[in-house]
Design a binder for these strands. Structure first.
Lengths: 239, 239
DNA sequence: CGAACCCTTGATACGCTTCAACAAGAGTGG
DNA sequence: CCACTCTTGTTGAAGCGTATCAAGGGTTCG
């Protein structure tokens, strides 16, 4: 959803050279901000560059700040008992918020987070951010808006889980990933896509074949063509 | 979750008589606030007293403010084509927030809302609230906290839908409703409870019988006793 | 080359829904 | 007061959707 600026960043050309590369990320996370707000964010953000597989935070850890993925992808899920395993629940592809909510709550983080590839993660420590919010009401409002956006998205996810079967969810997911184009490249392992759709890899494989047989898509490895976007849309719609 | 203050309101005795009855509601929605913030809220809130079945807002309607249920219960779901039908997705039992998010987003409300019984609903118009937030940063922070709480709860719901079967969800729901007590009264039709658990009424009936046969609960109509809360907890836990 | 992944495919099992029938109130009107 | 109808909850039988288990083929990498 917020990945629009990830590739081209046409706005970057117009920004003064003094701005750090993370500034575009803040723009796409919080919308347009004034120079003062950006400077404040840049000053208080703790940037961490992580290798693939590195943990970002753990379930139950006390959250000292807000977390965002600036580059790369981070997985949210549950670490398994055996050290290597990781039951993925959602992947966050930068730039996007990773955990906006936990810092405000006493329970700490709800899930484990670990880098899926090399990634750059920012943490905004809560006390400092709070002060910045008091000086810049615009920033506070933008945070509220970002939280509202997350509420909306999570609500849509629960709705889909309750009312759409696997095929419908896959159709909707393909359309969302394609963002209007008719061709798309799967950016992660199919088993991870399956995890996000709350189905098994086997079922995902079968559903892909179904859509192929129905002439709605063409699949070649990790490249997918949407042959009939309108048909997919109709399929994805409920009832 | 926030219903704790709904019945006893032991704090009410300590408040000056000048405070409107809605003040306790604001306290339980936003936490302790100063007199100035409360006065501001009381001034800008639009209160509506609704008869059973009255619509509160509709899917797609532009949201002009934040909505909260002060008294009674409001259902969130989808109105059916035939005028009477209503596919319930979640019920909000006052005092609790009904829709904190939509006002900040351009898409409007995500679901239809209608009173399930006689209810009292408050709307906080966004422009006025925004001004109030700028004068009272504490209020802004409390709103952020409330949104974070919703993100947390919705995340838990999706997690449960993905990883828990019907029996586990029912066990968890019973424990949550009982709030530590060992006896509880079902406050709504069983089919509505089933809708919230994303199962059919038939399955709910069968699951209740299952739990009864396992000796975990005793059921008599709408009265339920938790005979073995620890056992329920163990059942509700995943794996 | 083998080893370790990943994806696919098939057979089978299980959970839940759907459909149909029935019992138990609550209201209504004769 | 008794039929009559509506609504709700319960129960059973059958069927659909998805998971699970097991096997095979394709890559990549040591």
């Amino acid at each position: 959803m917020l990945n629009l600026h990830a590739l081209g960043t046409p706005a970057a050309a117009r920004l003064p050279a003094s701005l750090s590369p993370a500034d575009d990320a803040w723009q796409s996370l919080l919308g347009d901000l004034g120079a003062a707000e950006l400077a404040g964010l840049r000053e208080l953000a703790l940037l961490r560059r992580l290798p693939a597989g590195a943990p970002v935070f753990g379930r139950g850890d006390l959250a000292a700040g807000l977390f965002a993925v600036l580059e790369g992808a981070v997985g949210l899920g549950q670490a398994m008992a055996d050290a290597g395993g990781f039951q993925l629940e959602r992947t966050v592809r930068g730039p996007a918020w990773l955990d906006l909510a936990s810092a405000w709550l006493p329970e700490g983080h709800a899930l484990d987070a670990r880098a899926l590839g090399p990634a750059c993660v920012a943490e905004l420590p809560l006390p400092a951010l709070r002060r910045l919010m008091q000086r810049h009401p615009l920033l506070a409002e933008r945070l509220v808006r970002a939280l509202a956006q997350q509420v909306r998205e999570l609500g849509a996810v629960t709705h889909d889980l309750m009312h759409k079967d696997a095929e419908k969810r896959l159709a909707a997911w393909l359309l969302q990933q394609a963002r209007g184009l008719t061709e798309l490249r799967l950016g992660e392992r199919k088993r991870d896509i399956a995890a996000q759709l709350a189905i098994t890899p086997e079922t995902l494989s079968r559903m892909m074949r179904q859509l192929k047989l129905k002439g709605l898509i063409a699949v070649a490895g990790y490249a997918v063509q949407l042959l009939d976007p309108a048909g997919l849309q109709a399929l994805a719609r409920e009832e």
